[in-house]
Nucleic acid binder design. Structure first.
Lengths: 193, 193
DNA sequence: GATATTTTAGAGGCATTATTCTAGAATAAC
DNA sequence: GTTATTCTAGAATAATGCCTCTAAAATATC
């Protein structure tokens, strides 16, 4: 009952996503988010308590989207496929990729000021950590600090580095990127794979 | 002649550097920069036309500091040494490294609004580009788009990625980082070195 | 159709923070 | 010592942008 909503929570998140991808979080204003959607500024506050909550939810939604596929690849494929998940995901989600990979979490929200936001954040880092540990144990054998650092490097840091330069230009990463990621993977992980 | 300055331009830049390293550019206020130095806020405007100029000059000064050593290594050492310049520089300049490597240029200034700022920015990118091209020509032989991308990857992207995770925690990068950078270098550059 | 509820719509208040302004202090040149 | 100059000192001003508030609109329930 009541007047049916014209603008959903997701629509505001989509609008924010576009603006963040284009200009970065610091240049996003509540007025711009609303205008980009043709909504009045006040309507934003019917869906989100504050600008910070809006940005936090955009961040969490985007990490969710990325991480789900990554963890799946980590469990059900070999290491190379998991390492290549990043460039593939980026090609399929250019806008979201710019949001996720060109900015740090602190640009979106500084403290967790709700139980829900805090829980979701913690769950994401815990799941990622667990996935990496499980993969390391299965692939390398031991989960020393060094071996964990090594798998994190080849599965996350290097793919991120390879893709970043292209995202900054607004381009999709070329095939060469996949090739370099794979070479790096084999070099650092050695004969273990 | 005139009253001798109590606070120099560099002192304001140092103060800004500390604050940016700790909290990021978006949380730096002119009042905080001045207070951090024990200066009145108005004095900032005796040295800089605006907050944006202050941040722009900090960025340029920091890039200068990094790039000088990097280009030197690129010309006078082998590729591995050039790739290892990043972790070494980071260890020697932890605060400046957090400024340079945890933030993008756009967080400091968006447009070049002075001839001087524009010229310095352009010179920096031109010098870097020239250095990378020269190195690629000398080491690989040809300077195709692919070979240039490859050298950029192993000399800049990978070292940056390897170091970033540690900088976020405020730690100096461990030796393992150098080892991974070197492995990656040899793997991607192949037998050419 | 009356009422309760939820939303649109957008103007206005309010807080933060960049910038300017005035007064006075410190120094060099004469 | 006087003057011109440059700076400190910090209060006053102005702009930006988050958030709130009131009015009206749209719908479900009775």
């Amino acid at each position: 009952m009541g007047r049916p909503p014209k603008f959903s929570q997701d629509q505001f998140l989509d609008s924010t996503c576009r603006l963040v991808a284009r200009h970065g979080p610091q240049f996003v204003t509540v007025a711009a988010v609303a205008e980009n959607l043709g909504a009045p500024t006040g309507s934003v506050y019917h869906r989100f308590r504050s600008k910070e909550e809006l940005l936090a939810r955009l961040w969490l939604r985007t990490v969710d989207l990325f991480q789900e596929g990554f963890l799946d690849a980590l469990q059900n494929s070999d290491g190379v496929a998991a390492a290549l998940h990043t460039p593939r995901w980026v090609r399929a989600h250019l806008t979201e990729a710019r949001v996720l990979l060109l900015h740090r979490r602190e640009e979106f929200f500084s403290r967790e000021w709700t139980d829900e936001i805090r829980d979701r954040t913690e769950r994401l880092t815990r799941d990622l950590d667990a996935g990496l540990r499980e993969f390391t144990a299965r692939t390398v054998g031991c989960v020393s600090a060094a071996s964990l650092r090594r798998t994190t490097f080849v599965l996350m840091d290097v793919p991120y580095a390879a893709v970043k330069r292209h995202l900054e230009h607004g381009d999709a990463p070329p095939d060469l990127v996949d090739e370099m990621i794979e070479s790096t993977y084999r070099a650092v992980m050695g004969r273990l794979t």
